[in-house]
Design a protein around this nucleic acid. Structure first.
Lengths: 108, 108
DNA sequence: TCCATAGTTCAATAATACTTGAATTATAAA
DNA sequence: TTTATAATTCAAGTATTATTGAACTATGGA
């Protein structure tokens, strides 16, 4: 993963609304969620939500697909994994860590 | 981990200099690095570096300790783990993920 | 004590990011 | 074809974040 993409992804997640949106999509999994449902659940105005969805999309963290007059947004797990991996790369120069870095997803 | 702390941590990492600083500290491990050495390695002015070190410290991602007239900064692995875990919490509602979320640190 | 070194804090400027209403695009149903 | 619904884009004002030089604090050595 490129540094600029990492920064873009971290910036995308470093905002209350976008963090909540992303986590909601991570929880929803393969089903995804529409902007309407997200806006309803999170109490965010359509214009504002759209702006934030675009930020997350540009970062590659979420992906929209169209279904009739709805859009469905889904988390991109590969992108998330790449991001998490980047932060711990070459951790402790390959030595076993004093405080080991744990697997992030207990159910996988 | 509290949402506000998560956002603060992500904001802290979502900046070129701070991301490089943090990764340098992750690689350095328990030895840590001084601001002087970081500034030298990354080509950053002392004032600017100090500002960014404070941002990372406030987020709890790095911790300074004094050693004579030097400060030594170290990554806080527990905070990093908590952050990474937060992003994948309740992933796919506990179902096995379509695209599994991998352990982030191969050497641990 | 006096000076040099290691870092930080402060204040001002410069640059980015967030929100909102109005207008727009795309699809579906009457 | 006309109307309604779902969502986005645009432009503006507002707010937050980054950089820099000058001044300051703390430690160690001459």
């Amino acid at each position: 993963m490129e540094e600029q993409n990492v920064i873009r992804s971290l910036s995308a997640l470093a905002q209350e609304i976008r963090l909540r949106v992303f986590r909601a999509l991570v929880v929803a999994g393969p089903d995804g969620v529409t902007p309407g449902a997200l806006g309803e659940a999170l109490g965010v105005a359509p214009t504002t939500l759209s702006f934030h969805l675009k930020e997350l999309s540009h970062a590659g963290l979420i992906v929209p697909t169209r279904d009739g007059r709805h859009l469905i947004y889904r988390a991109d797990y590969a992108q998330m994994n790449a991001l998490l991996g980047y932060l711990t790369e070459n951790c402790c120069r390959g030595a076993p860590c004093a405080e080991p870095v744990a697997p992030v997803c207990k159910t996988c």
